[in-house]
């Protein structure tokens, strides 16, 4: 395509990139996915017939810290994007890696929390709280894990020189996914942990 310019190549009817449009459609659809789990949690809140109940188990300071970690990982993620958009590959790698570390910390916190709750007698089948809590936060954790995998893959590719300023879209898309996982946690943190009738 010798005579075709970059702008010719990127032409779409809406002027928007296919992959970015796909990502936003996916996120819009994922709203319904998490909405369904959150709805089940809210519907069954306070309806467990046996304990342990949320008030017996929730460790708000601990969860606040992990919520804070995930929130900060959004900041580092957007800094990685800002770096690559300015062509700073080195800083992008640093922020990308930091984000992956923070995400891993969040997952570690969740594993710790699940284990603790389990020791105190809450399992998937104990009561409605156990069922709805583990499945909702577990699916969120799965999303974070996929996010960490994506970040680490991008990091490896960038170490091999595969991500330059012109490829910033890859980082942007990973970022969109990552921030979405973060805002889901913002909702879960408030509705599940902080609001307890």
């Amino acid at each position: 395509m010798a005579h075709a310019t970059a702008a010719d190549h990127l032409q779409t009817s809406t002027g928007l990139d296919n992959r970015k449009l796909l990502m936003w459609l996916f996120l819009a659809s994922d709203c319904l996915f998490f909405g369904s789990f959150i709805a089940a949690y809210l519907l069954y809140r306070g309806r467990s017939v046996v304990g342990p109940y949320p008030a017996d188990l929730f460790d708000i300071p601990f969860t606040s810290v992990s919520a804070f970690i995930l929130l900060m990982s959004s900041v580092t993620m957007v800094l990685a994007l800002a770096a690559i958009q300015r062509g700073n590959v080195r800083n992008m790698r640093i922020w990308l890696f930091t984000t992956a570390i923070l995400g891993t910390l969040f997952i570690a916190g969740q594993v710790f929390e699940f284990t603790e709750f389990n020791h105190e007698g809450l399992s998937l089948s104990t009561n409605l709280f156990g069922t709805t809590f583990f499945v909702l936060t577990g699916f969120h954790g799965a999303h974070v894990t996929v996010g960490v995998l994506i970040l680490l893959s991008l990091f490896v590719v960038s170490m091999r020189g595969g991500i330059q300023q012109k490829d910033s879209l890859a980082i942007e898309l990973a970022g969109l996914y990552w921030h979405f996982v973060d805002i889901v946690w913002i909702v879960i943190f408030t509705l599940v942990y902080l609001i307890q009738p």
């Binding site: 449009l21 459609l25 996120l27 819009a28 709203c31 319904l32 809210l42």
Partner: peptide, 21 residues
């Protein structure tokens, strides 16, 4: 368009599940 799509999905989620709950 991105805002329309995302707020659309979000609003739909909030409305249908509020009614269902």
């Amino acid at each position: 368009l991105f805002s329309v799509l995302f707020t659309g999905g979000l609003a739909l989620t909030v409305v249908v599940f509020t009614v269902a709950i």
